[in-house]
Design a binder for these strands. Structure first.
Length: 424
RNA sequence: GGAGAGGUGGCAGAGCGGUUGAAUGCACUGGUCUUGAAAACCAGCAUAGGUUAAUAGCCUAUCGAGGGUUCGAAUCCCUCCCUCUCCGCCA
């Protein structure tokens, strides 16, 4: 959520900032609501003040044993006019909130303007795409040949956009996740969490999935519905919701391995082959809760942490700075890591690292006590994949394939595979 | 699933329907004392909104959430959520 104060003070600046992201804010409408709110609020408060002071007088009079009937007559009509004013106030506040909670974050000044992924800026590359002396297969053909990747079996059980893994490939998938977690906890200073995979609406609101993107999430049929997490960013970040943290608790660096569930509504026909886009996939996620002046540095740190995973796996990748049009709702600046996939002959997203400023913190009421001011102030939040396990599996299969169909196991994973060197 | 207890400020913990934004203790901040520190003593110490030049005043709201009763609700009533204890079931 954007700072309501900012909208009051300089709505033109906000509107032009949002326009960079392709969001058109109806400033006249908002300002109209704002002045209505102000007028009604003043009226409500005046009435409340009258009621309070009258009630106090009645209390005093009663204590002295005086006749309170004249006083009661005085306030007779107050109640109904107050109630009416309060209802009006609520109506305006709801309308305002509906607009406010639907506004995306403002992009950082360093973010390039653009419409979609074609306008993203490449920051750097690491590693060279492998040159094959034979025609490389994609992960679907590789997995199927091995008999260890089975989309049909998954379809029988669950429908499209699911995959079943067996044997060595299933183990490799697990090894990747363990390796990533170990790297972040042992080398990058993250605390590992095990978190709920279902969260309530408040949590989904806090990180910005609700109310706007309700259609993207799976929801339970409980009386109080719960949402299957689309990423563990949701439970991890919301851990600090409503809290006032001490300065020495920051930065907080959290990581977790969880499945992620996404309905992929609106992506029909895209990436239908293979494991690229699934309703369910594993992801190791990193979350940082930081002081605002550490936010910029934290984004760079997290990007390095995600890069370290790909470097250790010796997978070629490039780092992209997302343009305004390609960023997520809560982000003010995002780096994407794109790994080289020989099967697609292109770089594909495998990690997304975002700085959210106070956007999520404001929604969650997550604060820290700033020693300099002595007051609670909003924290800043960041999140990033470290990295997507399913897509990393694809990358390893495709990049480490041998001409005979075997998969070489990356050196750093062999210890996680009982010393195995190849999947065959 | 059954029975019971409870949710109050950073924490702990009081609170006959009326002057309670809320006792007290701890923590924290400033001061006195001291060579320094501790102890003791004194003072201060919630968040948000409105008004405002103001992080000064003044006003309003907030005691799990949402409704209700009342001139007036932290206190009474209803619904829901959560926590704890005991029993049952269970990976």
């Amino acid at each position: 959520m954007l700072d309501p104060l900012l909208l009051r003070q300089d709505i033109t600046a906000v509107a032009s900032g949002l326009k960079r992201r392709g969001y058109v804010l109806d400033t006249e409408n908002y300002q109209g609501l704002e002045s209505q709110r102000k007028a009604i609020q003043i009226k409500v408060q005046e009435l409340q003040q009258q009621r309070n002071s009258r009630s106090k007088l009645i209390g005093h009079a009663k204590a002295k044993g005086e006749d309170i009937q004249p006083l009661l007559d005085e306030v007779a009509s107050l109640g109904s006019s107050l109630k009416g004013a309060e209802q009006q106030e609520q109506l305006v506040l709801e309308q305002q909130k509906a607009i406010l909670t639907g506004l995306p974050n403002l992009a950082d000044a360093s973010v390039p303007d653009g419409k979609d992924e074609n306008d993203n800026l490449e920051l750097r590359r690491w590693g060279k795409p492998r040159q094959f002396e034979f025609e490389p297969l994609d992960h679907v053909d590789l997995g199927t040949k091995l008999g260890e990747m089975d989309a049909e079996a998954a379809a029988k059980l669950s429908g499209s956009r699911f995959t079943l893994l067996r044997g060595g490939v299933a183990r490799l998938h697990r090894a990747l996740a363990q390796f990533m977690l170990d790297t972040h906890t042992q080398e990058h200073g993250y605390t590992e969490l095990y978190v709920p995979y279902m969260v309530n609406a408040d949590a989904m609101f806090g990180t910005g999935q609700l109310p706007k993107f309700a259609d993207d999430a799976f929801i339970t049929t409980d009386e109080i519905p719960r949402y299957l997490i689309p990423t563990s960013e949701v439970p991890m970040t919301n851990l600090v919701a409503g809290e006032i943290l001490k300065a020495d608790e920051l930065p907080m660096q959290l990581t977790a391995l969880t499945p992620c569930f996404r309905r992929e509504a609106g992506s029909y026909g895209r990436d239908t082959r293979g494991m690229i886009r699934q309703h369910q996939f594993e992801k190791v996620e990193m979350v940082q809760i930081v002081q605002p002046d550490d936010s910029d540095a934290a984004l760079e740190r997290m990007t390095k942490h995600a890069e370290a995973i790909l470097q250790k796996l010796e997978l070629a990748y490039r780092v992209m700075l997302l343009c305004t049009g390609d960023m997520g709702f809560a982000a003010e600046k995002t780096h994407d890591l794109e790994v080289w996939l020989p099967g697609q002959d292109s770089y594909r997203e495998i990690s997304s690292i975002s700085r959210c400023g106070a956007f999520q913190a404001r929604r969650m009421k997550a604060r820290w006590r700033n020693p300099e001011t002595g007051r609670p102030e909003l924290v800043n939040t960041l999140n990033g994949s470290g990295v997507a396990v399913g897509r990393t599996l694809i990358a390893v299969l495709e990049n480490y394939q041998q001409e005979d169909g075997r998969i070489k196991i990356p050196a750093v994973l062999q210890a996680y595979m009982g010393g195995l060197e190849y999947i065959a």
